[in-house]
Structure formats: C-alpha cells, structure tokens
Simulated scan of single mutants.
Amino acid sequence: MIALASDTADRIDEAVEASLAALAARAALRAPHLDELVTAARRAASGGKRFRPALTIAAFDAFGGTRDDTPELWPVAAAFELLHTAFVIHDDLIDRDLERRGAPNVGGEFRQRALDRGATAQAAAELGDAAAVLAGDLLLAEAVRLVAMAPTDPDRRDSLLGILDEAVLVSAAGELADVEHAVAERPSPAAQLVATAHDKTAVYSFAAPLAAGAVLAGADDSDRAIAVSAVSSIGLAFQLVDDLIGTFGTRTQAGRAPGADLRARKQTALIAFARASAQQATVDEALERAPTGPVAVRRAQRVLQHSGARDRLVGLVGELLRDARTAASGLPVAPRDLLHALADRVQERIP
C-alpha cells in the first residue's frame, strides 16, 4: 500500500533482521530448543509486506523528519513489524491454524516436529500451542525492547512507548471481542462487530505506526492528532474491505479459496447487516449451508448481495474514507497527500 524506494525497503529489512539476529545470538547461548524457537519466530517475520514499518517511515518523511539526524527511526519502525508478527503467531493459535503463507507456522512446525519424534497427537498439539505462545511473547518483548532502547530523548521515548502500549492493549481487546462474537449464542449487532474490526486492526496497523513516525519527526501535536484520527478511519475501512474480500473476493484477491470467511462461519459486520435485513431467514439458511462446498458458497454470496448487506458495507467504507480525506485536508501538503493515497488504495481493494 506504500511505495518505498529500494534503499528504504532494504533499510527496513536490515533493521528487522538485525533485531532478530541479536535475539537469535542470545538464544543460541542458552539451549538448543530455545534456539529452535527463535529460528521459527525469525522465519515467521520474514517475507512480509512490511506495511507497518513502511507507514512509520512514510509518516516521518511526510512530517518533515530528517533521516540522517534520526538513527532511532529504523529500530522503532522495525518494532512495529515484530509486533505484527507476534500478533499473527498468536492469532494463528487462537484460530487453530497450522499454516501461514502455504507453509507450517510456528505452532504447526513444532507440532510436526513432536510427531516426527514419536509424540502422541495430543502431546504434539500441546507443544505446538506452547511454542506459538512463547514465540509471540518473545517478539512482543523484542518490539518493546527496540523502542525502549532507541537512541532518543526521554520524552520522545515515553511517547513512543505509550503508543506501543496502547496498540497492544487495544489489539488484545479487539482479539478477545472477536472470539467472544464467534462463540456467542446469538449473533452480535453490526455496531459491535465494526468496533471489534477497528480494535483488531486500525490501531496497531495504522494509527500506531503513523503516530510513531510523526513523533520522531517532531510533528505538531494538533497535526499528529488529526492524522491519527484520519488514518484510524482508513484502518477500519481497510479491515471492512478485508471482510468483503473474504466473502466476495477472487482467489487472487484473497490469497485463498473464494468465500473462505463463509466456509469458516466468520462473524463480520457484513453478516450482521444481512441478518438485519428483510431476508433474514434466507440469509441464515444460506450461511448454514455455505461450509458444505463451492455451490453453497456461491449461493450464500448471491443471498448476501440480494439482502443489500454488501452495498451497505461498501457505503460504510466510502463514508469512512470520505471522513478521513476531509480530516486530512487540514494538514500540511505531504501528510495530507500520504493519507489521501492510503484512502485511495483501500478504495481500490473493494471487490
């Protein structure tokens, strides 16, 4: 979503890798099983799009920061990539997923290792779950360490740690709410599901990285608040578009089989809007059958479309992006243009 010059992308990768290499060196001095855990966590952090550190750098540049005078920029940016990887590892555990990007994730890797060594299926599952918890914890701690040890003044460090702390807290609230919605006896209202989507994604993926870049650049407090508010709306819109992609997107867009969210019975604002429509009975019947195969998925997609839920959610996305653009119009040119470009990219993702 953010185009970076190759040298900037390289420096982000170098900062992430330097942190992980230092963690691996410390682990190697302890015990082989800890070294294996850090190696798995290191693999989990490789090959990503690096959107969050890229947003930190882009915000820093947009608010007039000088890279040569701010060596702490790179470890702080890297911290948001490690935070993201930690959340992904924990999220896979919560969802009972054993793969990520077509390969075993941390839990899947340790589970298979235990099976190969003769463990029972239950024992292997317990080891895999423990490894996922601990790998995520290590990366969370490393993200905090990077910010806490960044070579900056105490006031700025306090601001950055506050941003990181808020991101962790809100994301935990969002993840817990997401699970509560999934196991609830009755479907959750759309407003609650929208709030959960915001907490799961908008803060740690959008608001926090942008705020950190603005702080490092010495941005005006008022401008920073406006930018954070605008990018939070963009982040929520991004997650709602992800829900549309998970239901209506192609295999190329979703990176998985079409209608994956329908197969998984995922509770989203889209589903809540459909259930609140005049076609509730038809919607419920179609959703109940959706996991049975591709024909049922296609029928559920048609039913959701006919209910008006898709149009309603697209309308909400448009409203959020308009609000973000309006808020950003009061900013200096460079941060305004950055936020407008992010809003445009989210708009382009709508399936």
Rank of each mutant, 00 (worst) to 15 (best):
A3F: 06
L4I: 07
A15K: 09
A15Q: 04
E17S: 15
L23K: 04
A28Y: 01
R30F: 09
A31I: 13
D35H: 14
E36M: 13
R43N: 13
R43Y: 13
R43P: 07
K49N: 10
R50M: 10
R50Q: 13
R50E: 06
F51L: 07
R52I: 03
D61F: 01
A62H: 12
G64V: 14
R67W: 00
D68T: 08
D68E: 15
E72K: 05
A77T: 11
A78V: 10
F80V: 12
V88E: 10
I89F: 13
H90I: 09
H90L: 05
I94S: 06
L98R: 14
R100D: 04
R100N: 11
R101M: 09
G102A: 05
A103F: 04
N105M: 05
G107K: 01
G108I: 09
G108Y: 08
E109V: 04
E109S: 15
R113T: 06
D116V: 06
D116T: 05
A119W: 02
T120A: 11
Q122T: 14
Q122G: 11
L127P: 02
G128R: 06
G128W: 04
A130C: 07
L134F: 05
G136C: 02
D137M: 00
L138D: 04
L139I: 01
A141W: 03
E142N: 05
R145A: 14
A148V: 03
M149S: 12
R156C: 01
L161W: 06
L164M: 14
A167N: 01
A167C: 01
V170W: 04
A172H: 08
V179K: 00
V179R: 01
E180F: 12
A182W: 07
S188I: 00
A190F: 03
L193I: 04
A195N: 14
D199W: 05
T201K: 13
A202L: 03
F206H: 06
F206S: 03
F206V: 10
A208V: 03
P209C: 01
P209N: 04
A217Q: 01
R224E: 02
S229N: 03
S229I: 02
G235F: 09
L240V: 09
D243E: 08
D243K: 09
I245C: 06
G246E: 00
G246C: 12
G246T: 04
F248T: 15
R256Q: 12
A257W: 00
P258L: 08
P258T: 15
L262A: 08
K266A: 04
I271R: 14
I271K: 13
A274T: 12
A274W: 11
A276K: 05
Q280P: 01
Q280V: 15
A281R: 10
V283F: 01
V283K: 10
D284C: 07
D284W: 01
E285L: 12
L287D: 10
R289Q: 15
R289A: 14
A290F: 10
P294W: 07
V295H: 12
V295T: 15
A300H: 06
Q305N: 13
D311Y: 03
L313G: 11
L313E: 15
V314W: 06
G318I: 08
R325D: 04
T326N: 09
S329P: 07
G330Q: 11
R336A: 04
D337C: 00
D337I: 06
L338E: 00
L339Y: 08
A341N: 06
R345T: 15
Q347C: 12
